[in-house]
Design a protein around this nucleic acid. Sequence first.
DNA 1: AAACGGACCAACCGCTCACAG
DNA 2: ACTGTGAGCGGTTGGTCCGTT
Length: 281
Amino acid sequence: MGRHSCCVTQKLRKGLWSPEEDEKLYNYITRFGVGCWSSVPKLAGLQRCGKSCRLRWINYLRPDLKRGMFSQEEEDLIIVLHEALGNRWAQIAVQLPGRTDNEIKNFWNSSLKKKLMKQGIDPNTHKPVTETQVIKNEKHCTDIEPPNVIQPKGLPNLAASPQTEQQRCRLGSSICTDAGENFLSKQAYEPIEGELSNSSNVNSQTKNDMIVNCGTFSWDGENKLESMLSFQFSGIEAVERKQSPWQEADHQSSGEFSDYQQFTSLSQELSAANLDAFQQI
DNA sequence: AAACGGACCAACCGCTCACAG
DNA sequence: ACTGTGAGCGGTTGGTCCGTT
């Protein structure tokens, strides 16, 4: 399918989101929920395609996002999960509350990958580079070797699963094994009444909860950015990232801001829960 | 101070899957 | 069974920032 039909038929804005657009989208979703993404831009008064709105919400506006640098624990967890799951960023993100697949993917490509290579570890196989080369050569000879799935300690053996690759991929957080390991079956993350990504099915109660929890979007208020951006991961203070240019400039814009702190604390709780999973490894 | 290059990140593109009709 | 549409995902790109020369 590729490009959404809505993107073809209408003249829609592309590129970076303005504070006004963010505000519109945020206010709309916190008030009414998502429902159907394709109808969101129209109802929210945006000149964007639904896909773009969805992405903006998931990657940036969602109130339960953690933001800030990745902690050492998160970094380790990503490495372990990548070893087990490969480039299934969405699956990895499920295990890291408050982090988006895009964020993790970027972090992996820009930082972790290089870090591993520096340590002489092949980021694709998670094996020492020399060993990887040997395996590659062997593979080249036989060509019937099963996929090189590394089994991390404490994780279910995905390779041994009778499911197809696709099924495993799709199952994601529901993966279970006979061993009873619940690492991957653990739903570590349920932001705002059962995850807003499912909010196409958001019922009225959920919507009400969202309204109550989220309040009204606004870029005003002295502490808004601190509230939004500050977070802790298991007691470790994270150093804050830089703000977007418009975020910095937007301290003066109007509106109300409230309740981001609630989401921050929610993320913290979820982070703690998720750390249990990490400790099992 | 200007130019350059690498790093980072937000957003887009194109694909697959699920599901309704 | 087939088709159209929407959602979700991973790969890629382009813009911006920042350090170095």
